[in-house]
């Protein structure tokens, strides 16, 4: 049978699953924790440094975020962040540096397709959904705040 029936397909998917390598959950957790934690420590050091220099906390935290975005973009440009991501998984994808990576990497990738249809059109290929659903959920939460709480 060229196209398997639903039952055959289910049986085959079950069979194949048995041959997949086990997911290294514990190892991945530890790697993600170590790398993600290190990124946060760097952020904390920058924040503490700025506060110690007398920058007001609100401004210092925005400056920290900007600095971390810059570092993420820089490491992406140097071709290092993808290596970190391959190792750390969510540990480097979740912090704001990962967000920078998700925007800078397509921008770099599609430079050859031009600045309009390449860089700018593709820049939010990965980050786009995060922005859309981030904005959407913030609106929902705001509405809830106004009417419910």
């Amino acid at each position: 049978m060229a196209k398997a029936t639903v039952r055959e397909a289910e049986a085959y998917n079950m069979l194949v699953k048995g041959f997949h390598p086990p997911r290294q959950v514990a190892r991945n957790f530890i790697k993600a924790y170590m790398v993600g934690g290190s990124i946060c420590v760097v952020g904390q050091i920058i924040l503490d440094y700025l506060v110690a220099k007398g920058v007001p906390f609100v401004q210092a935290s925005s400056m920290t975020s900007s600095t971390m975005v810059f570092l993420g973009a820089l490491l992406t440009g140097l071709g290092i962040y993808d290596e970190i991501g391959r190792f750390a998984g969510m540990g480097s994808a979740l912090p704001i540096t990962g967000f920078a990576n998700s925007i800078v990497s397509p921008a770099m990738e599609f430079k050859r397709e031009g600045f309009v249809l390449g860089v700018s059109a593709r820049m939010f290929q990965i980050a786009g959904p995060v922005l859309v659903y981030g904005a959407l959920s913030s609106i929902i939460v705001s509405i809830l705040k106004v009417f419910v709480f």
Binding site: P21, R23, Y81, G85, G89, N101, S105, E109, I126
Partner: peptide, 12 residues
């Protein structure tokens, strides 16, 4: 994904 995007490849 773009080649510089940092993600973990599936073991399969």
């Amino acid at each position: 994904y773009p080649t510089e995007f940092g993600y973990q490849r599936a073991p399969t």
